[in-house]
Design a binder for these strands. Structure first.
Length: 311
DNA sequence: AAAACTATCCGCCAGA
DNA sequence: CGTCTGGCGGATAGTT
């Protein structure tokens, strides 16, 4: 699990240089730039700065580099690359979206780390920066305070992931509801849905997922999910894996742990009760799954959350 | 902690 | 043809 270097109310800066893609800065602007005092207070300090104002980087706790338009062969602006390298060395969290990842790679801060970019360019990225572990089929990566999103749509997921890291699941979920967005997808989701005719099937599966998420307190089997979707278990397994990269049971367990995390954050329920409400049969089962998926014990998670939010 | 038990996963394949 | 489906069964994973 990543150690948090930022805090609620931290300073987020988007670096705008030349021809950025406007869509790629939409998610950060919407999520970090709009006051959310009804959800959490203080919210982020947010600003957008151009290449000429890169002194503003000094105040930033998080810097976001959106994709540059034009051919990726063009090398990124050196002063931006230097500014990013310097910022990272002084402990700033660095985020890239789409081809913005090339700036991070050029700065050398991705060497030996996982990163992703738009699938069309991942080959180029891997070839030009062999030391970078390019993950071509995930929505986003998060390693050592360096986060990379595959593209515009994934940037939404990544921004929510950041909110979750800074404020916890309960706040992130409240924000998701307010934005009227589908439930947050984690970084392991596949980027490209392989089958071209996946359209309607996709809908059936996501419907089922929403239903499951709303009924996590009940014990559910993969067959139950399949029945709900009107598919055989074999087909459900195939479709769910195509869209989430996980098997049905794995996906379900992740949802259960997420639910447990939310309860740990905002309630004082006992482990038994949290286990029951998140659909884990016993506290022992909860502990084991929680550790496997979240990397800590439920109790440790609760304490860490209270410590960093002072609640 | 380990064994016994059950559920799930996934390659394969015939059929639509 | 190519694509999708769902059943089968051995290997695995998860639970108790």
């Amino acid at each position: 699990m990543r150690t948090l270097s930022t805090h609620p109310g931290s300073f987020v800066t988007v670096a705008v240089t030349g021809d950025i893609s406007i869509m790629e800065i939409a998610a950060p602007c919407e999520i970090f730039g709009v006051s959310r005092t009804e959800i959490a207070d203080p919210w982020y300090e947010f600003n957008v700065c151009t290449a000429r104002e890169m002194a503003a980087f000094e105040d930033a706790d998080t810097i976001i580099i959106p994709g540059l338009q034009g051919p990726v062969e063009k090398s990124p602006p050196p002063q931006l690359v230097n500014a990013v390298r310097q910022a990272y060395q002084t402990g700033t969290r660095i985020v890239s979206i789409g081809t913005g990842t090339f700036v991070l790679a050029e700065a050398g801060i991705l060497d030996g780390r996982r990163a992703t970019t738009h699938w069309m360019h991942s080959g180029t990225l891997a070839a030009r920066y062999p030391a970078v572990k390019v993950e071509s089929d995930v929505l986003y990566t998060d390693e050592d305070d360096i986060l990379t999103a595959a593209g515009m749509a994934a940037s939404v997921d990544l921004c929510l992931h950041i909110v979750q890291a800074d404020y916890g699941s309960a706040v992130a979920n409240a924000l998701t509801r307010q934005l009227v967005m589908p439930p947050h997808r984690d970084g392991g989701h596949v980027q490209v849905i392989a089958s071209p005719a996946a359209g309607s099937m996709d809908h059936v599966v996501s419907e089922t997922q929403s239903w499951v998420i709303a009924h996590l307190d009940q014990p559910l089997t993969v067959s139950d999910m399949a029945r709900r979707a009107g598919l055989s278990t074999r087909s459900l397994q195939r479709h769910l894996k195509a869209s989430t990269g996980k098997t049905p049971l794995q996906w379900l367990l992740v949802q259960r742990v997420h639910k447990a995390q939310e309860l740990l954050e905002r309630t004082d329920y006992t482990m038994e009760r949290i286990a029951a409400e998140s659909g884990m049969s016993t506290a022992a089962t909860l502990r084991r799954q929680f550790r496997q998926i979240a990397g800590t014990s439920p109790d440790g998670y609760r304490r860490a959350f209270r410590d960093r939010t002072g609640r």
